[in-house]
Design a protein around this nucleic acid. Structure first.
Lengths: 214, 214, 214, 214
DNA sequence: CATGAATGAGTATTCATTCAT
DNA sequence: TATGAATGAATACTCATTCAT
């Protein structure tokens, strides 16, 4: 091994350690931010929880604010990964949709503290251009709209602007996530997903009423 | 007029003045809380805006916290009034539903700062048992569920648990309210209401697909 | 007394109180700054010495820095007053000069802490355009130069640029002030003033040597 | 060469390297201390400037304080060397004096940062018994007083206590050094030295006025 | 010998709340 | 009843120093 290679490896090892340490800090920070809220979480507490010095935190994140925003970004990264993994290998479009909805609701049901973090982000950093959630939302929404478009062409979804679908369904999911968090004890993810799919797929009108409308 | 009556009247007059003053303070407080967030709104600023002494605020509300919560409650009170007024005199159930949805979306579209207040409430007072919004939600939801039940009996809505309808529709509205606030520029209330009603009434599946499912 | 007059008086009374309080704080601050140095003086200590709350200090001075600079300015204001008072009513130019020199040295001999403050100012606020001392120096120096000019015209001082006199004499005084402070125990002000005047008036050369030079 | 001799030599070589390194560190430290002030100079910055690790500095100086004081001592050592060199080989007493004055003023004119260091020393280390400057001053002053004494005996300087001369002249130089530093743009060293010598040698009084005084 | 990651003591400033006037 | 001057608890962040590698 050459000098350079050794140097590169050494650097890479320390860079790896750094990333690990960052993740550890973010994980702990997220829990505390979710538990006590942004303002009431103090760096001292976080340092104690991590069993490290306060100064060390500042070696990895330049400010409490930056730490919080990194934690919020991490939540969205994890959500994205979770949903992507859930639809991996599924080919039927409706099944993909169902899987994604279950993954979304399941992700936040398993980690209520992530919801809290999204709320804190909005409340504390009103100035930040756009909440993390919506930055990620935009990226994903395009893919779903393409899916809906092809389903309309295939005659499986009735002809309508695809934005209508993503808007209504997206809002229902977003709203459900918050409602679940705020109300605590709630129906299973499975049931909630089925309820949403039932209404959104079939509508609530009776056959008789549907005919009147058309 | 007896002494007692005069005393009562005097008291009543001053009580009326007190309520007026409380409203003035709440209105101003709400604007500031929405604009700067709870922590960054300081009593000094509020006193200046109201052109009164800081101490005077404390004569009406025992603490900053109490003031904020009263402001949040006021928002819900106003929302309730706005929706109630919108469905006043409408008899057709579907029209009532449409009016209520438009009133809900319209209320928060006209007052984005109210949305901010609901967010701040959640973020800052995690300990408060249940967010104001959901306290009010429960009261209202019963009435709508009765409406849906009678529509099912009348064969205008297909047979399904009414909770499914209120959950999905409620979430869609709640989610839309937040999404609208976070994304700023959005479609008109009219269009959004129509989109939601279209999807929730008719579903998105094509007739051919519906048959497969049944 | 009219309403307006009473109002004005009330305002004037509170303004007077404010000035008094400012002076009290400056006096105490100056002592602490001189005793411990700028960095090692903490606001807590000052508050305790004054028997007031820390916050109160900040009602009068926006920052520790501002407080310090105000204290330094106060020193120069007091010095100026002291010198002005000392030459009051003296008409003979040489006597005025002697009085001023004695007042200058005496002022700092009686208040060694003032010297410390000037040093701290320079050390801590290198960015401030010009030390307080030199701001005041400029104002005064003109007056003395005029005095020297008239003495040259009157044939009492030999013909030479007046700047030479103010530069050398000013430096000697400035240097003496510092030397006195740094060395502690020193000759009396009277003796020091006489020594400076003797050298500056008559020079150190013997008559014989003077003739060679001329 | 014996084992011991080789050992001694080896030690001597490494001791030499050590001294070199110490000088490098002092030189860099001095610049930073002068530029940013004592408190605002942090060891990290110094390490970067020197391209060495922070820990290494601590191998040469036990603390930031010790490092600073060593830097201040170094300034005085350099000043002494500079003045000694300037009078080397000059035999005429008055010329020696002139050369020393020019060397003193020139030294600090060329290195304004040295003045800053002397100020910082006083401001930050009030407890240190006596400022470096005055420690050195004492050593030198004796030699000059002997010179003046012999000049008085030789009838070239009028009869007066030699302390008077060193006090006034010393203060004038010390004061000039500070004034130059604080005011920035100043007359040339040559001119300033001449001004001081003119006043101190000949006094400012006219011949007529001198006769009155005697 | 050299390094730089880790540490935690130390501190200016803010702001909700009180209470004398 | 209204005021606003006074209070002091609370807290993010820095940086000299250490020590494992």
């Amino acid at each position: 091994m050459t000098q350079t290679a050794r140097g590169a490896q050494r650097r890479s090892v320390s860079a790896q350690r750094r990333v690990q340490r960052e993740e550890q800090i973010l994980e702990a920070a997220m829990q505390l931010f979710a538990e006590h809220g942004y303002s009431d979480t103090d760096t001292q507490l976080l340092a104690e929880k991590l069993q490290i010095g306060k100064g060390t935190i500042y070696r990895y994140f330049p400010s409490k604010r930056a730490l919080f925003l990194a934690a919020a970004d991490r939540v969205m990264r994890l959500m994205r990964q979770s949903i992507d993994a859930s639809i991996q290998g599924i080919t039927d479009p409706f099944e993909r949709l169902g899987a994604a909805i279950r993954a979304f609701l399941g992700f936040f049901a398993e980690h209520p503290e992530y919801v809290e973090l999204l709320i804190q982000e909005r409340a504390q950093f009103k100035d930040r251009k756009k909440p993390t959630y919506f930055v990620h939302r935009e990226t994903n929404i395009k893919r779903w709209q393409e899916l809906y478009r092809s389903l309309i062409e295939a005659g499986r979804i009735r002809n309508m602007p695809v934005e209508r679908i993503t808007d209504v369904l997206g809002s229902a999911l977003y709203g459900t996530m918050f409602t679940n968090y705020f109300l605590g004890e709630r129906p299973s993810v499975e049931k909630q997903a089925n309820d949403i799919l039932d209404v959104v797929f079939y509508g609530i009108l009776s056959d008789a009423e549907r005919k009147k409308g058309s």
